[in-house]
Design a protein around this nucleic acid. Sequence first.
DNA 1: TGATTTTTTATACATCGTATGATAAATAAC
DNA 2: GTTATTTATCATACGATGTATAAAAAATCA
Lengths: 100, 100
Amino acid sequence: MGEFEQIVLLALLRLGNDAYGMEIRQEIERRTGRETSYGAVYTTLDRLDRKGYVTFRMGDATAERGGRARKYFRVEAAGRRALTETRERLAVMWEGVSPR
Amino acid sequence: MGEFEQIVLLALLRLGNDAYGMEIRQEIERRTGRETSYGAVYTTLDRLDRKGYVTFRMGDATAERGGRARKYFRVEAAGRRALTETRERLAVMWEGVSPR
DNA sequence: TGATTTTTTATACATCGTATGATAAATAAC
DNA sequence: GTTATTTATCATACGATGTATAAAAAATCA
């Protein structure tokens, strides 16, 4: 799993594991301070979905004010697992290393 | 910087910051338990070199026993910096998240 | 010289990062 | 009720990164 995929997954978890694309993008900006396009986020969400790392449900169309229906995503067990594994693989390599 | 690039860089640091391709590959296998091809490692070393994250010197040809000259790599300051930054970006996203 | 060993290089293709522009669907204005 | 505006996602495209296989280079051994 790539780094940006991890970041998207973590943003979703951080948002209570039930959020939609635009929110996720905002959360990423808020935490990393780095601007990101919507396209980047949606493409990645789509790939995560195809891997079975996330699923989604369509939101009610009639929300507050005009606009297309939202897709609410959630991280699945496989996604949590992959996230943890990726993290640990790197942690093992970092062990005892201090790049000064 | 991608995950495998990080892993290669960390393996190099771990080996005392003066190692050649085949050693690096072995160190990666030893630590992560995951098999990797030589091609993967060399391609990545080449990319890291072009980014200025590593440099190399050619080793003496006349070593122990036959074979082509080794290229001894070392991580440069830019590489250390990039490594740390990448790590911190992810750490910020992980903060307070426990994917159970 | 030719086989063998050690190491790197070339190449190729799949996956991931990331932006731009198009499209969809709802409400608001007139 | 057609058009503008708003909210949100989709389509597409292309460079960067992951990763393997096969070839080549350069040294020693027989």
